[in-house]
Design a protein around this nucleic acid. Structure first.
Length: 272
DNA sequence: AGTGCGACCCGAACGC
DNA sequence: TGCGTTCGGGTCGCAC
């Protein structure tokens, strides 16, 4: 559950459930998720509380007193809310217990997610946050901005759309979908993209991300959030994971290739 | 600097 | 059936 839309869904659902509850215990089962010293991590969280949850790109930002907890779900990170007396399930790696007898549990089959505590004053300088580019829904994401970023880049446009320092929040699934919606061949170099095509990329990203947020995100693998929200955007995918199926526009079979080591799906006929 | 690629993980899907 | 192998997903770090 990798992308901006999913992270936004998690943010909204968790906000309703965990704010202003005193943290009484932290149980770390798999520590490599956490980038801080583990004792330090526990010490800062215990007796603290979450005051708000923010988001930047695909990073969740839990606001504590004096600190922020950054959390990146990567592919399969999930948060569950459970009663503290429930048995710890497989793949639950970090358990944050509240005074009211509930837990916030971080579950990650692939153990790819990351967490990091930073002091409040250090947030903006934190490399993971500082590097984030403009978000698809941000008004300041303009064709002028994209043209400037694409200038001189020989890399395929597909690869460049995945660069979080340029557009923050697009992952492999949506990059495939955005290029299909924009009628752009994923192999073209970023520098060959015209201003008009930049406009198309922006409007398609907007449309796709908005729809995906509305649908609770995409779920290639079955995903149910802590609150029973299931992503339904997969019902709207045009090309991703559709190798050999008919293109929704022209009916020719969808092709699958690798670009920069990543699966890329597109229609040769519709994407020039 | 820009670019390319392996490493990190492990369940699912695939091949035999 | 059961085994071994491959793949995928986002990001970092290292090598060129």
């Amino acid at each position: 559950m990798p992308e901006l839309a999913e992270v936004e869904t998690v943010r909204n659902t968790l906000k309703k459930r965990i704010l202003h509850k005193k943290i009484v215990n932290v149980n770390i089962i798999y520590g490599k998720i956490i980038e801080n010293d583990l004792d330090e991590f526990k010490k800062i969280l215990i007796n603290n509380e979450f005051n708000d949850i923010l988001r930047k790109g695909k990073w969740l930002i839990f606001e504590l007193n004096n600190h922020y907890l950054l959390s990146h779900l990567r592919m399969e990170g999930k948060y569950f809310i459970k009663n503290s007396d429930e048995e710890i399930a497989k793949h639950e790696h970090i358990i944050i217990s509240f005074a009211d007898g509930t837990d916030l549990r971080y579950h990650d089959t692939r153990k790819f997610g990351r967490m990091k505590l930073v002091k409040k004053e250090d947030l903006e300088a934190t490399i993971e946050i500082a590097k984030q580019g403009k978000e698809p829904l941000d008004d300041t994401l303009t064709s002028v901005y994209l043209l400037e970023k694409f200038k001189g880049k020989k890399l395929p446009i597909k690869t460049v759309l995945l660069d979080q320092e340029i557009i923050s929040g697009l992952g492999n699934i949506y990059a495939n979908e955005v290029l299909f919606a924009s009628g752009i061949n994923p192999l073209r170099s970023a520098s060959s993209i015209t201003k008009d095509e930049c406009e198309k990329i922006i409007s398609s990203s907007n449309k796709i991300i908005k729809k995906a947020i509305e649908m609770g995100g995409t779920t290639i693998k079955s995903y149910t959030s802590s609150l029973g929200v299931t992503g339904h955007y997969q019902d709207y995918l045009c090309v991703h994971k559709k190798e050999g199926e008919a293109c929704p526009k022209c009916g020719k079979p969808i092709k699958k290739i690798k670009i920069g080591g990543r699966s890329t799906y597109y229609c040769e006929n519709c994407q020039k």
